[in-house]
């Protein structure tokens, strides 16, 4: 479904990603592992069309290099930011309506429950009043409601407690069941067991890719042997 070929990203004269190759299939959970600073967020945002890059990205066999962010979104790709934006003045329910395919209030309530939030939060503003954890779950809810073909989740597990961690794993498994492919970005191997396949990024390069268990072993042994 997604194929990244020889992707290179240069920012401020620095090569952040070097000849990255990555392939994932429809409705699979692919884990993108890497220590902080290895280039995971940059790769996620390049796939979404936020950064320009050299190399090629194919989605469902189609070259999408010339497409803008929203054109990629309309093909079925979306991204949940590591640190989601806040929207002063916008209610959670109105924000979710933007992404939702099924815009019924009942559907919104179900998904809000699924990510472990109370129904009442639908009537809050997405401003300073929400905690970072709540904001991240709302983002997850927005992605689920969009029913994308590919969801790129940038560290959905960072800055949350163990309880939410379990819940988020369940949610991601559910997304897969509903037919969404998930590119799950994380810097710890805690989430690896829900993945089908995985890739390790280190200093902007792919150092391993393949079935989950093999990659897990490698990552435990040496998460990032290359220097920048």
């Amino acid at each position: 479904m997604l194929k990244v070929v020889n992707l290179t990203v240069i920012r401020d004269g620095r090569e952040i990603l070097k000849n990255v190759n990555l392939e994932m299939h429809a409705a699979e959970i692919h884990l993108l592992l890497g220590v902080n600073g290895s280039g995971k967020t940059t790769l996620a945002q390049a796939i979404m069309g936020i950064y320009s890059y050299e190399g090629n990205i194919f989605f469902e066999g189609k070259n999408i290099d010339s497409l803008s962010v929203w054109e990629r979104a309309r093909l079925g790709i979306t991204l949940a930011f590591q640190e989601p934006a806040r929207f002063e003045g916008l209610l959670v329910k109105d924000y979710l309506m933007i992404s939702a395919r099924n815009k019924s209030m009942g559907n919104l309530e179900n998904v809000i429950k699924m990510v472990g939030l109370p129904r009442s939060i639908l009537f809050h503003e997405i401003g300073e009043n929400l905690s970072g954890g709540e904001r991240k779950r709302i983002e997850l809810a927005a992605v689920i409601l969009m029913q994308p073909k590919l969801a790129i989740l940038d560290e959905p597990d960072s800055g949350i407690d163990m309880l939410s961690f379990k819940l988020i794993s369940e949610v991601i498994k559910k997304m897969k069941e509903l037919g969404t492919g998930v590119l799950l970005i994380t810097h710890s191997e805690d989430m690896i067991d829900i993945a089908d396949t995985a890739t390790i990024l280190c200093s902007g390069k792919v150092i391993a890719s393949g079935p989950r268990d093999e990659v897990k072993k490698l990552f435990k042994y040496s998460p990032c042997p290359l220097k920048r």
């Binding site: 929203w70 930011f81 934006a85 003045g89 916008l90 992404s99």
Partner: peptide
């Protein structure tokens, strides 16, 4: 317009104009 807000909305499939309209109406709410 806040870049991150804009990109977030575009990643959900809104065009740039649609996204700006949502952000502006939020500010004026």
């Amino acid at each position: 317009v806040d870049k991150k807000q804009l990109i977030t909305l575009m990643a959900r499939g809104l065009s740039e104009e649609q996204a700006i309209e949502i952000i502006v109406q939020g500010l004026l709410k």
